[in-house]
C-alpha cells in the first residue's frame, strides 16, 4: 500500500507518545538538579592534590618536581618551588610547592598529570559543577583549593585508592625496614668495631684503632 510506511511510522510515534505517559521506565531523561547519575569510578573532570594527615599544607604529597607542569598539554599548571623542605610520608625531606595553580578554563581533563606523577600526589576529581560567577580569579585554583584529603580520593576512586595506598605502604615499610636494617647494621658494625678495638687493644695497645666509619645509613 502506497503511503503505508507513513501510517506505520505515525502509529509507532503515537505509541511512543502514549507510552511515555503510561510507562515511566520509557523516559530516559534524568531530571538533573534533583536527581543525578552517580559518577563512574573512572570518571574524571579536574585534578586535585592529595594530602595525608590532618593539615592539608603539611601533608601535601606534591614534591614540586614540576613533571606535571611540563607534561600538561594545554599548560594549565603553574608551580613555584619552595626553598624550605618538608618530610614526605617516609620521613625523607623533600621539596614542596610554594605556588600550585591550575587554571580551570584551560584544563582539558586529559589526566596526563595524573599519569606522569611519580608521587601519586595529583588525582582526578569527579566534581563537574565548577561554574563560577567570576570569569578570572575564580577559575584559577590555588593549592589551598586543590588540596583534598586522601579519604576523599578513596571515596571517588576506591580501586585506585587501595592500589596507591598499598603501594605507598609497601614503600614506606620497605623504607622503614631498610632504615631499621641500616640502623641494626650500624649498631652491629659499631659493636664489632668496638669488640675489635677492644681485642686489638688487648693484643697490641700501641696500634691505633681503625676508623669507625660504617657506610652512611
Amino acid at each position: 500500500m502506497l503511503g503505508g510506511g507513513i501510517v506505520k511510522g505515525m502509529v509507532e510515534t503515537a505509541r511512543n507518545f502514549l507510552g511515555s505517559y503510561t510507562d515511566e521506565a520509557r523516559l530516559t531523561t534524568v531530571e538533573y538538579p534533583e536527581e543525578r547519575i552517580p559518577a563512574k569510578e573512572n570518571a574524571r573532570q579536574f585534578p586535585f592534590l592529595v594530602f595525608d594527615g590532618a593539615d592539608p599544607m603539611a601533608g601535601l604529597r606534591c614534591v614540586a618536581c614540576q613533571i606535571c607542569e611540563k607534561e600538561c598539554p594545554p599548560q594549565c599548571i603553574y608551580i613555584v618551588k619552595d626553598t624550605a623542605k618538608k618530610p614526605d610520608y617516609t620521613g625523607k625531606l623533600q621539596f614542596q610547592p610554594k605556588v600550585f595553580n591550575i587554571d580551570l578554563s584551560v584544563c582539558m581533563s586529559c589526566q596526563i598529570c595524573v599519569e606522569v606523577c611519580p608521587f601519586d600526589a595529583i588525582k582526578m576529581d569527579t566534581e563537574y559543577e565548577l561554574a563560577r560567577t567570576d570569569r578570572f580569579g575564580a577559575l584559577v585554583f590555588d593549592k589551598n583549593r586543590l588540596a583534598k584529603p586522601n579519604a576523599y580520593f578513596h571515596k571517588l576512586h576506591p580501586t585506585d585508592g587501595a592500589e596507591v595506598d598499598g603501594r605507598l605502604a609497601a614503600e614506606k615499610a620497605k623504607a622503614e625496614a631498610k632504615a631499621k636494617a641500616d640502623a641494626e647494621a650500624k649498631l652491629k658494625a659499631a659493636a664489632e668495631a668496638k669488640a675489635k678495638a677492644a681485642a686489638a687493644a688487648a693484643a697490641a695497645p700501641p696500634v691505633a684503632p681503625p676508623p669507625a666509619s660504617p657506610p652512611a645509613a
Binding site: 511512543n16 507510552g19 511515555s20 523516559l27 531523561t29
Partner: peptide
Amino acid sequence: KGLGRIQNRP
C-alpha cells in the same frame, strides 16, 4: 512537549 514525548523525553 509533544516531540519530546514522541522521543520518550519529558
